[in-house]
Computed example of a mutant assay.
Amino acid sequence: MASDFLVDGGRIMAMRRSRGLSRRILANLVGCSEEWLRLVEKGARPLDRLSTVMRIADVLRVNDLSELVGGPITLPATGDHGEYDEISQALLFPRLCADEVAESVHRVHRHVSSAWEIWQRSPRRYTELHRRLPALLLMAETSARLAKAADQEAGAANLAQVYRLFATLLRSSGRHPLALLAADRAVAAATADLLLPAVTRAELAEVLIHLGRYADARRLCLAATELTADPSTTGTCYLTAALATAEENDLLQTEELLNRARKIGDRLGAGRADFLTEVDLHTVVVAVRMGRYRQAIRLAADIDAARLFAKDRQARYFLSLATAHTMDRDPEAATAMLRKVVETCPEELKYSPGAGRVVQQLRLLDCETTRGELREIARLTA
């Protein structure tokens, strides 16, 4: 599984002993077999579901998962439902339809496709998905569980896509620990689909980048390229791996990964010009992440972001350029980029942590010509 690297079973064993619990008692409290737990503790079997890690952490009274997981990850405890919004509750406290009536997998697929369309195109995508996703997850879980044998793969694919939506929304909102949980579940649900095993791993890698797990993210993406024969999916994995490598300031490896993606775009040809645009945009974002702000600005001069179908990606690109212009001490150009974000999706300024940081940095520059407009933009981030 994608998240095999997350847990060291020896840590679980040490903490169990420090709490005075036998292996049998912990296994009973978690809801697993004693033999399974023994294999996990000895490192003979991977603990590949973050939700199971959370159950173990809850029993062992561990609030900071970095004590069990190989990295700085803190997920909310699973005790009081009232502390969380509907998105958090849907992930942390899964439930099933009481009347056991399931929508057909085909109908669920239409709802999932509609939700992705909203995320990629709607100026109110954050609000809309916050409203829709809890019910959509409940629908997908019930449909997948009750699907006929012939529809089980399609039901699992629907569920994986819903978890991907959760992960994308939470990651974009800066809620990375919960995004990690959603991305992990997407990987687990995607095993039967031809494309989803690679796509869900790329999403998980994006979350790991935000958590500072750059090497893990790169390894995950490169492994995912072996799981699909679809060129654009392979290219997406290379682009995400390049973002992770850029965070480690490894210029040569980053350029190699971008070149691999660009070669795929060249082979796809004019029919997939949008993918080459994706490569160009990632090249700019990579330059920003490596602190090469003027290079990013020069590269951006030849890019038409409007060629991208997905407005969420356009908004992320404009935010990266706003950062570049801000760090280059050009508040007017940076404010112009924020204006493009507002035109693309005003909610980006409210929900994206990166937008708030750019606005704060621009206000510190205190440019007289942009002061009034920044006040208006700042209201959108409140």
Rank of each mutant, 00 (worst) to 15 (best):
residue 193 D to S: 12
residue 259 N to V: 11
residue 193 D to E: 14
residue 208 L to N: 13
residue 273 A to P: 02
residue 242 A to I: 00
residue 245 T to A: 01
residue 224 A to H: 09
residue 222 L to M: 09
residue 251 L to P: 08
residue 224 A to N: 04
residue 272 R to A: 01
residue 270 A to I: 04
residue 250 D to T: 09
residue 239 L to S: 08
residue 221 C to Q: 03
residue 248 E to I: 05
residue 290 M to A: 07
residue 287 A to S: 14
residue 216 D to E: 15
residue 199 V to G: 00
residue 200 T to I: 08
residue 200 T to V: 10
residue 289 R to F: 04
residue 247 E to N: 05
residue 214 Y to E: 10
residue 231 P to F: 00
residue 199 V to L: 12
residue 258 L to M: 15
residue 246 A to P: 13
residue 243 L to S: 11
residue 220 L to I: 01
residue 243 L to T: 03
residue 250 D to K: 14
residue 252 L to M: 13
residue 223 A to Y: 03
residue 212 G to H: 11
residue 264 I to N: 05
residue 229 A to T: 13
residue 202 A to T: 09
residue 210 H to S: 11
residue 240 T to V: 11
residue 229 A to S: 15
residue 236 T to M: 04
residue 290 M to S: 13
residue 245 T to G: 06
residue 283 T to S: 15
residue 240 T to N: 04
residue 277 T to G: 12
residue 267 R to N: 09
residue 207 V to E: 06
residue 234 T to Q: 14
residue 290 M to P: 11
residue 274 D to M: 09
residue 260 R to F: 07
residue 271 G to M: 00
residue 239 L to W: 01
residue 220 L to F: 08
residue 274 D to R: 00
residue 253 Q to Y: 10
residue 283 T to K: 15
residue 269 G to R: 02
residue 221 C to M: 08
residue 256 E to H: 12
residue 204 L to F: 08
residue 209 I to F: 08
residue 248 E to P: 12
residue 271 G to C: 01
residue 253 Q to D: 15
residue 225 T to N: 03
residue 285 V to M: 15
residue 229 A to H: 06
residue 211 L to R: 12
residue 213 R to K: 13
residue 199 V to K: 05
residue 237 C to H: 05
residue 282 H to W: 05
residue 212 G to W: 03
residue 231 P to H: 01
residue 194 L to G: 12
residue 211 L to I: 01
residue 197 P to C: 06
residue 231 P to A: 07
residue 270 A to N: 10
residue 238 Y to R: 01
residue 215 A to K: 10
residue 194 L to K: 15
residue 213 R to V: 08
residue 260 R to I: 02
residue 278 E to H: 07
residue 201 R to Q: 11
residue 193 D to F: 06
residue 200 T to C: 09
residue 258 L to K: 08
residue 251 L to Y: 10
residue 252 L to Q: 09
residue 198 A to Q: 06
residue 226 E to W: 10
residue 289 R to N: 15
residue 235 G to C: 03
residue 215 A to Q: 15
residue 238 Y to T: 00
residue 272 R to N: 09
residue 276 L to G: 08
residue 278 E to L: 03
residue 242 A to Q: 08
residue 227 L to I: 01
residue 285 V to F: 08
residue 238 Y to F: 10
residue 242 A to N: 01
residue 276 L to S: 11
residue 276 L to N: 13
residue 212 G to T: 03
residue 271 G to I: 05
residue 202 A to K: 02
residue 237 C to E: 05
residue 263 K to T: 14
residue 278 E to V: 04
residue 234 T to G: 06
residue 283 T to L: 01
residue 239 L to Q: 11
residue 233 T to P: 06
residue 215 A to Y: 06
residue 207 V to S: 06
residue 281 L to M: 13
residue 205 A to P: 04
residue 207 V to I: 13
residue 268 L to M: 07
residue 241 A to M: 02
residue 265 G to T: 00
residue 254 T to K: 07
residue 229 A to E: 14
residue 260 R to E: 13
residue 289 R to Q: 15
residue 233 T to V: 10
residue 238 Y to N: 03
residue 248 E to M: 12
residue 265 G to C: 07
